[in-house]
Simulated assay, not measured.
Amino acid sequence: MKVVAFARSQQGTGASRRLRNSGKMPGIIYGASTAPKLIELDHNALYHAINKEAFHSSILDLEIAGVTEKVLLRDVQYHPFRRLVLHVDFQRVDEKKKITVKIPLHYMSQEVSPAVKLSGGVIMHVLNEIEASCLPSNLPEFIEVDLGNLELNQSLHAQDVKLPSGVDLTLHFAQENPVIVSTTLPASMVLDNADEFLEGGAPVT
């Protein structure tokens, strides 16, 4: 994905306000042992790009004055209530060094899982992304997680995810293995079962 930016010489609150009033927005590029560079971008073009999932998890081609750099989107600052991006941070990418990034999870086949199809359960997505490290060339746009065999009251953890070749799960603690998906009965079915049990009937299974 390509992003076109322009060098920015002025900084400060007043300069940023004037920039936004002209339909542009401030940003910065940093990293890769190179001095940070102030940039400005077209607000509307970037706003639409930011709404695409791939823009947050892909290596981007950032062009300034005909020179292209490989970057990752690292931070976005939004206006508290207006549909307005206030500032963006991009990090330069070294093709020979691993990067750590949050990768979206796409859950597949959940409607045919035993938890849903046979037991009438619901699947709760606890996490919609996981943090992983890899070389830039191995970075996937997303990771598919097959839920076709998921049973009622079963959970999947981060370490259960099958990662693409060259991609490693990033865990910050030795025992860390967070739940990404869990299954349970809908609250209405739980209440119905409880009522039937109190009335002396056999609970529904």
Rank of each mutant, 00 (worst) to 15 (best):
G148N: 13
S137Y: 15
V116Y: 12
G121K: 01
Q110S: 15
K98H: 12
V85C: 05
V93M: 01
S109F: 14
L105I: 02
I130P: 06
D89Y: 07
S119M: 14
D146C: 11
E111R: 08
A115N: 06
L118H: 12
V126D: 00
V101K: 06
V145L: 03
H125T: 10
S119C: 14
V126N: 05
E95M: 14
E95Y: 13
N138E: 11
A115K: 10
I143Q: 00
D89G: 02
H125V: 05
T100P: 05
L127N: 02
C134D: 07
N138M: 11
I99S: 05
D146P: 13
P104A: 06
S113F: 02
K98N: 12
G148Q: 12
R92L: 03
L127C: 05
V88Y: 02
D94V: 15
Q91R: 13
H106M: 11
E129D: 13
G148T: 09
L135K: 08
P114F: 03
K96H: 12
C134K: 08
K117V: 01
L105A: 00
K98I: 06
P104F: 07
N128A: 04
D89I: 04
T100D: 06
I130G: 05
L147E: 01
Y107P: 01
S119Q: 15
H87Q: 06
G120V: 10
F90C: 08
F142P: 02
S133K: 08
I143V: 01
S109M: 14
E111G: 10
M124S: 15
P140D: 03
K96D: 11
Y107Q: 05
A115H: 08
L139Q: 09
S133W: 00
V126L: 02
S113Y: 00
S119R: 15
H87N: 08
E131C: 03
E141F: 12
V112C: 08
H106P: 05
I130W: 00
D89E: 09
D94G: 12
E111I: 02
T100S: 10
K117T: 05
